[in-house]
Design a binder for these strands. Structure first.
Lengths: 234, 234
DNA sequence: CTGAGGCAAAGTGTATACATCGATTGCAGC
DNA sequence: GCTGCAATCGATGTATACACTTTGCCTCAG
């Protein structure tokens, strides 16, 4: 089990670059374990989407570029949008609605009196909770699973591009906008406005893309500080 | 390798019902192989979505109901819709467009002069090709993979509810409508009409749902003839 | 009688030896 | 010199023995 964690870390940190073929014996020696758990670990990481099965057996580290980050964000928006739309169309469970409203209220409390005063750790955690609750809101195991899968890649998670210290004004502003979207998204679902709920969820995902664009265009020195961008090629 | 195929068959045929916990030793004995390839096989079937990993190790056969079929169809519509929209918005590769147009033309030739005269095998094969080409059209590996994944479950494939003999009028009619959607979908993408392309792709997936509804409401005796419905619970 | 703790059995996790498959390289024959 | 076949090396596939974890039941104590 430890093998999974160590191997995953080596991949997401970029220590093992994309395209590398992983040999069982080599990996087993470097981790000081036998081939069997290595195979098991690789199999699991293939499930996660970090590895591809090579033809004729074996595994290859997947290569990710910025286009993949963009598409992963777009995909998350589409899937969360579907969850929101279905929740609106089919009617969300009242208890679940109450729960997600509570999360929105808790997120409100992360904002202080001044724009500078934001509880980032609290926001990040509650944001993750909000998105988990959203995925559940449609009551569809199929949708929930798919969101979970699409979200598993390090740069595709809803909290991937939340600023860790958020000393950038543009980032800080994005939090306020995102929270407004949280609120309106829940309102749209409760009002059974499926199309609107879907549109908001899609747009909401794009805030991650805006932050990504900022990092890429305005201040590339932030790239190393973004967990999940380390494994990108080039 | 043979283990994967045999085990998969036992699951999709319903021989091993959902919720069953699979024990490595038992399975190994029943397949006359050792535990190692059994583990490997289960791991792969977990990737396919047929098995879930149980807490404390081991695997459990996933349980599917009709709600899962509905949601899988909806999901395919959403993902294919996204592929279509992105292809329209970003501009599809001209060669790829030519290729998918050729498939549409070939599909046309499956329809004879009378409504009764349809080449079902040819249609089925070309239909699968069309959907493969559609998934590729956006030029996004991320999208293509996700469509591939969502489509892998036996009841979620684009050809899942094509009538094998199609002796039902309603089914035959659906083919004509579906082909019209193929044509308009390509036209919308070529015209860079993203929203329309997305809408058509979603609606197109719903034809599978219409066929499913027919089977469920009008003539349940057809259920065993639908490959991929055998593994459903209840 | 109930609850907790330990013991036993079953099942998975791991290590390792052996088999098999594929590719690459070298040799021989044309 | 080129082509084809064969052999060898390296990698994954398979079998099996052993270790460890977990779970369920039974017993003993409160």
């Amino acid at each position: 089990m430890r093998a999974v964690i160590e191997l995953r870390e080596k991949i997401v940190s970029g220590e093992i670059p994309g395209g590398t073929r992983l040999f069982e014996v080599t990996m087993a020696e470097s981790l000081n374990i036998s081939r069997t758990p290595v195979r098991e670990a690789m199999s699991r990481l293939a499930e996660e989407g970090l590895l591809d099965r090579a033809r004729g057996g074996g595994f290859i580290v997947r290569t990710f570029g910025f286009a993949d980050v963009i598409d992963a964000i777009e995909l998350r928006g589409v899937l969360e949008g579907t969850a929101a739309r279905l929740a609106a169309e089919r009617g969300a469970d009242p208890e679940a609605l109450t729960g997600i409203r509570a999360t929105v209220a808790a997120l409100d409390k992360c904002f202080g009196v001044t724009p500078q005063d934001v509880d980032f750790d609290g926001y990040s955690e509650l944001n993750a909770k909000f998105h988990r609750q959203l995925a559940d809101l449609a009551g569809s195991e199929t949708i929930r699973r798919e969101i979970d899968r699409a979200t598993r890649l390090p740069f595709a998670s809803p909290s991937a591009f939340l600023p860790d210290k958020a000393d950038i004004d543009a980032f800080r502003r994005s939090l306020t906008i995102a929270q407004e979207q949280h609120r309106e998204l829940v309102a749209a679902i409760a009002a059974r406005e499926g199309a609107r709920a879907e549109a908001i969820a899609r747009e909401h995902a794009r805030s991650a893309r805006r932050n990504l664009d900022y990092v890429m265009i305005e201040d590339r020195s932030l790239i190393p500080r973004m967990p999940g961008l380390a494994l990108l090629a080039s």
